[in-house]
Amino acid sequence: MRTLMTQQYSKVPAVNDLSFKINAGETVGYLGPNGAGKSTMIKMLTGILVPTAGQLFVRGKIPHQSRMENARKMGGRFWTEKSIMVGVTYDRFI
């Protein structure tokens, strides 16, 4: 049975050519279709994942090198459409 099945993987960029700046005190929404790289980018911003190319800075520091400090200072709520409760306003999630 093992010889009948093979695993095949291909490299697909999860985040490509992205640039943005969020100023202190701003509230932002990070929206996009499934598979657009939203979760991957959030993981890179928090230092959970390391980018394979390019540069990434949060408050002037490289996230994966200052992960604990970054986690203490970065606030946010992350949810998908499945976790949003009907009748609950955005303000209650902040």
Rank of each mutant, 00 (worst) to 15 (best):
R2W: 06
M1K: 10
T52W: 03
Y30W: 09
R72W: 10
Q8F: 14
N70Q: 14
A24W: 04
K38F: 08
V12K: 08
T52Q: 13
L49F: 15
M1C: 02
G47T: 13
G32R: 05
K73S: 11
R59S: 06
Y90I: 09
P51Q: 09
K73E: 10
D17M: 04
R77K: 03
N70T: 13
M68Y: 11
M44H: 14
A14I: 00
F57L: 12
T6D: 15
P13I: 05
S39W: 06
T3D: 06
T52I: 07
I22D: 12
H64Y: 15
S19T: 11
K82M: 06
G47I: 13
R59F: 01
K21L: 10
S19H: 14
S66C: 09
G54M: 03
S66I: 02
P13K: 10
N34A: 13
S19N: 11
R92L: 04
Q8M: 11
S83I: 00
M68A: 13
F93V: 04
I22M: 12
P63L: 05
V88D: 00
R77L: 07
S83E: 14
K82P: 00
K21G: 01
A53L: 06
F57I: 00
G76P: 00
S10K: 13
K73Q: 14
G47V: 15
S66H: 13
P33Q: 01
G60Y: 08
G32Y: 05
D91M: 09
V12T: 11
Q8L: 06
G75F: 12
I94S: 08
K38M: 05
V88L: 11
M74F: 05
T40S: 14
P33N: 02
N23S: 12
G32D: 00
V12I: 12
I42W: 03
N34F: 02
T40C: 13
P63G: 04
Q7E: 07
V28P: 11
N70S: 05
Q55E: 07
V86R: 14
I48D: 13
A71Y: 15
L31Q: 01
M1Q: 02
D91T: 09
G75V: 04
E26Q: 15
